[in-house]
């Protein structure tokens, strides 16, 4: 899923300051799972905005709504009326959701309430870890299903670097060294020979280096 974190209220407060009627728009999918922008967070944030505005002598009307997904038209439509009633939208979706909303409601200022951070997993309660950078050319099969592009701080395809010690990454002792994990996995799988193979430079053209990407599925076009 996409993992994000709600922006600090101080920043949000500044962003919404010019507006009188604000729709706080939650998203019920990824950002809900990571407690950044689901129904509950939307409600709490809406109250917080009302509260700080009142405290600072500003009047702002805050409405709240959560749709299932802000990255799909079908669900975005459900927000149309509420968006129409307000003069601005604070979207708690990931960056894609924010842009999708802005594209549908071109005359409305749409503001980001969440810092979108990464594609990751819920490792355990309260801990999300980054796992994939969406490079567009998945090479996990080579690396025992541990992604060096994302999880090695230096994106080494022929790691580990000289700073890997006791299983930890030199860049952050709280982070496991991806290459240590790769080696352990390959050991379990009996594929240690993968390590002897030279991995050539990656083709980044399928990543954001190639410009914004698009996926066309002819078979689904109607």
């Amino acid at each position: 899923m996409i993992v994000g974190e709600q922006k600090p209220i101080a920043e949000i407060k500044e962003m919404v300051a010019p507006y009188k009627k604000l729709l706080v728009l939650g998203c019920g999918t990824c950002v809900k799972t990571c407690f950044a922008g689901g129904e509950d967070e939307t409600a709490v944030l809406a109250s917080a905005i009302r509260l700080v505005s009142r405290k600072e002598g500003r009047t702002i009307e805050v409405e709240e709504l959560t749709v299932e997904r802000q990255c799909e038209n079908e669900f975005i439509q459900e927000a149309a009326e509420a968006v129409g009633r307000n003069d601005s939208v604070l979207s708690l979706a990931c960056g894609a959701g924010v842009q999708a909303i802005a594209r549908r409601f071109v005359t409305k200022p749409v503001l980001p309430g969440v810092n979108t951070t990464f594609i990751g997993v819920l490792e355990k309660q309260g801990l999300f870890t980054e796992e994939c950078s969406g490079c567009g050319n998945c090479e996990l099969a080579l690396f025992g299903a541990v992604c060096p592009v994302t999880r090695c701080a230096k994106k080494l395809l022929n790691g580990p670097c000289g700073g890997s010690q006791a299983g930890k990454c030199e860049v952050n002792p709280d982070t496991d060294c991806a290459w240590q994990m790769i080696i352990e996995r390959l050991k379990i799988l009996g594929q240690l020979d993968n390590l002897r193979a030279y991995v050539p430079p990656k083709n980044w053209n399928t990543s954001t280096s190639g410009g914004p990407r698009k996926l066309v599925r002819e078979d689904h076009i109607i």
Partner: peptide, 17 residues
Amino acid sequence: ANPFADPFEYRVIRLAK
């Protein structure tokens, strides 16, 4: 090359590489 980094067993493979 860093003979002192971990995992040690892999350090020589990496040198060969």
